[in-house]
Structures are given as structure tokens and as C-alpha cells.
Amino acid sequence: MSARGRRAVLVLGMHRSGTSALARLLNLCGAALPEALVEAAADVNATGFWESRALLALHDEILAAAGGSWHDLRAMDAGWFASDAAAVFRARLGTLLASEYGAAPLLLVKDPRLCRLLPLWRPVLAELGIEPLVVLAVRHPLEVAASLRVRDGVGEGKALLLWLRHVLAAEQDSRGMRRAFVTYEQVLADAPGMVERLGRELGMDWPRAPEVAAAEMRAFLSPALRHHERDADEVLGNTAVPWEVREAYRWHIAAAAGEAPGDGLDAIAADLAVAEPLFGGALAALEDAARTRAAELRHWIDSAVERYEAIVTLRAFIEHQQREIDRLAAHARAIESSRMWRTMAPVRQALRRWRGRGEMK
């Protein structure tokens, strides 16, 4: 327990790994949500994201300041976390936590970007006297890849490397902290039992016992929450999936089962560290080209929208003028068919003859 008795449950997991469902289950057992949540999205996450809108925006700003993004395949520069820019963000993060959570004794923090930003968080929580309790969530990497393809159009190769980057960073940077591992299958199979286990492994009692919240948990969970379902052997026994991904997934399954999987992730991280200088420059060039192309596409779309809006405005004007013409024509026909118009016909004829004689002179 921290000196001030406050704790923060940090849910770490790659995007599309079931962290939203897990966060809601922990919230049902008493962990406090932030003040302003990201709105649910029917086509992405209809049951809610259960994460702070302001914190998500700050995380994106931090990643951009560090020269990356949530979908950057390169490792974060460890030296950046000791920079003056990082110090500014630490101060902002502390202020944001106070505004989003107030004096809540048990905070619930969930954002997949946290996997890569934990070194920024640790000193902030220490300064605030908040003890971090880490829950590392893992999902079948091919399921994650399929979900990312639907949501973001990310190809499978990039998605698998992103998955690997996130799980490696989360595991490495959370060492020395109280932590527990969980798979997406465990989240869906027995939510009350899973949350109770997490509490034991984190050395805490939930403010609301899982058995008390069990009915609400089961009502929240649904088989429909799981899309792109794959069997574990589709990764573990699939030589088309990179060895590093297979081994990292095997390691996390063992950790979530309470086994001691050893230091296999260090070897994987070392492999990536050796390989990154080879592909890092090429990736940077490709990402720069992609950003340039995206900017050109946005400009083209904006121009097309402006032209379309001008056409719509012109069409509306033409249609308005046509309606005026039709109205005046109908009015003229009504006059021509009136009794007064017929009565005045001799007068009009006399006027035409008189005008004719005047023109002849």
C-alpha cells in the first residue's frame, strides 16, 4: 500500500486486445473511471472504451513529441523520457490525473498507448503517492491483426509487429511493479473468477467483491464481443507467423496461467534491437512518404469537397430561379385565361395598331 493509500490499476494491452471489456469489469468491482470518457462507437466498440478522452489526446501528443505515433513500428527512444519535453508532459499528466480522478482511492487507467509510455507514468505516480498495479492483457495476435485490418486498414505484417512492440514494452517497463497477466479468453470465460484472481495477484481487495458484481459482469459480457476468433495453435504452430510473435504469445499464455515462463522475452527484444537499425531507416522513409501522400490526399479531398459544395450551391440557385420562372409563367397563364384579359382584347389590339402606325412614321 502506498503512503497515502491510493492505488491505480493500469490496464496494459495492445489495441483490439479486449482491454475495454476488461476495464469495464474492473470498474464494476469498484475501480474509478475518469471524468470524461471516450464515446462508444457502434462500428468499433459498441459497449464503450472506458478510457479518458483527455488522456488519450495527451498520449497522442506525447507520442508525436517523441517523434512517433501509436502505430510506429520502431521502439521508443528511452533517452527521450529524461528530456525537458518529457518533464513538461509529466507535469501535465499529474494535473490531468487530478482533474480526471479527483481523490479516488482506486483509479482505473486504460489506454493501449500506455504500453509504450509507462516510463513517463512511473515517476508521476510516485510523486502523487499512488501505487501502480499493472494488469497485462494479451489477445491472440492474429485476432488483433484481423481487427486492426477492419478498423484501420492495417496489414497483417505490420499488425503483428505492432502487437509485438506493445507486449514487449509493457512487460519490460512494468518489471518491479505489482502485476498480473490475463488472456482475452480468461476475460470472457469466467469474469468474476478472473477479477478475483487479479486481486489476489495484485495484493488487494476490490472495493466491490467480484461475486457481488457477477450478475452485472455477465450481463455486460457477450459472445458478440469477440470477433475474428482464432485457435491458439493458429499462431503457436504456424511457421508463417514470425518466431518472435509465436514465442511472445506462448510466454504470455504461460504467465496468465500462473507459470514462470522464464526470460524468453529478453531474447526477442534483443533480436529486435539488432534488427531495428537495419529496417528503421527504411521504415522512417516509408512513413514519411505515407504522411506526404496522406496530406496530398487530404488536400485533394478538401478541394473536391469545396468544388462539390460550390456545385451544390449553384444548383440550388438554378433550381430557385426555375421555380420563380415557373411561378411567373403560371401567373401569366392565369391572367391570360381570366375574363378581364379576354374583355380587354380589343383594347390590346387597338394599342398594337397604334404602336404600329407610330413605328411606320
Rank of each mutant, 00 (worst) to 15 (best):
A3W: 08
G5P: 01
A8N: 08
L12A: 05
G18P: 02
S20D: 01
L26G: 06
E35N: 15
L37C: 03
A42N: 04
N45M: 07
H71I: 14
R74C: 10
V88A: 15
V88L: 15
A91C: 13
A98S: 12
S99P: 02
S99H: 13
G102H: 01
D111Y: 02
L114Y: 01
L128E: 13
G129A: 03
G129D: 07
G129I: 13
L136M: 12
V138K: 10
R149Q: 09
G157Y: 04
H166E: 09
H166Y: 14
S174E: 01
R175P: 04
V182I: 10
Y184E: 08
R200V: 04
L202M: 02
V212R: 15
V212S: 13
A215C: 07
R226C: 02
N238F: 03
P242L: 01
W243T: 12
Y249K: 03
I253A: 09
A255H: 05
A285T: 12
L286R: 15
H299F: 05
S303D: 11
V305H: 07
E306P: 00
E306S: 01
V312S: 10
T313R: 14
I318N: 14
E319N: 14
A329T: 14
A330I: 03
R333L: 15
P346M: 10
G358M: 13
K361S: 13
